[in-house]
């Protein structure tokens, strides 16, 4: 188990049918990501980085190849079992936040626990802690449209971490934010990584990607570059 990587993709193919032509969004992809890594996935649009993220998040299935998450082959799981893995092991942070507009900040944060059927008392405890951690306590009762962009993304991050996942998948988490707010959001995500959560960020912002210890550069569905920098962790 110690040597088992968190994520292991081998020979993964993802082909989309566009009219008559087949588009290879991912082509013969092999990838290992260890627990606690901070990985940036970069590349031009259409390079397959979002497809890779969806695949890692079990929102999509590969046409070929295997995906082992924590040593378990998850490609053959039933949709219900995959949903369970998503619920317990994976947290998503989206570019457009994806908060439910009719729910308050606290309710949005609690949503994964509601879906998982966590007891209300436990939910309240964890949401209160999350609100405190992300400085949202006085915003708990506000709906997303009453929150600033930064606050919204903080709610989204709180929601992504509330189930204490092993990996956080962030798709352009700062794409809809200004520089200062984006910086703050990245700092929050990196703090989580500091606590041992594996962080995978998809971005086309080179400056953002450079912050990660490991950069994956994708092009035409293939991994072109896999570079590590051994920057000391703070």
């Amino acid at each position: 188990m110690m040597n088992e990587p968190l994520i292991a993709l081998s020979g993964v193919e993802r082909v989309f049918q566009l009219g008559d032509s087949e588009v290879h969004a991912l082509h013969q992809l092999d990838l290992r990501i260890d627990s606690g890594e901070y990985v940036a996935v970069m590349g031009p649009s259409g390079s397959g980085k979002s497809t890779l993220l969806n695949l890692l998040g079990l929102l999509d299935r590969p046409n070929a190849g295997t995906y082992r998450l924590e040593g378990r082959d998850v490609t053959t799981l039933s949709p219900e079992e995959q949903a369970r893995v998503r619920s317990e092991r994976i947290g998503f942070v989206f570019q457009s936040f994806h908060l439910v507009p009719r729910l308050t900040a606290a309710e949005n944060i609690a949503l994964p626990m509601v879906l998982a059927g966590t007891a209300p008392s436990e939910r309240r405890k964890r949401v209160d802690q999350a609100l405190k951690d992300y400085g949202l306590t006085n915003r708990a009762g506000h709906r997303p449209n009453e929150l600033s962009g930064g606050q919204r993304q903080r709610v989204a991050i709180a929601r992504a971490t509330i189930m204490q996942p092993a990996v956080i998948l962030a798709d352009e988490p700062t794409g809809n934010l200004d520089r200062a707010t984006g910086e703050e959001v990245m700092r929050l995500l990196e703090e989580l990584n500091g606590k041992g959560v594996t962080l995978i960020v998809v971005t086309h912002d080179a400056a953002l990607g450079a912050r990660a210890q490991r950069q994956l550069r994708m092009e035409d569905g293939e991994l072109r570059q896999d570079s590590r920098q051994c920057a000391p962790r703070t």
Binding site: G57, L59, P79, E80, A83, R84, R86, S87, E88, F92, H98, V100, L111, P112, L115, A116, R159, M163
Partner: peptide, 10 residues
């Protein structure tokens, strides 16, 4: 979103 957050089809 609900699916991404772990909701099953059921």
């Amino acid at each position: 979103l609900l699916k991404a957050l772990g909701a099953t089809g059921g």
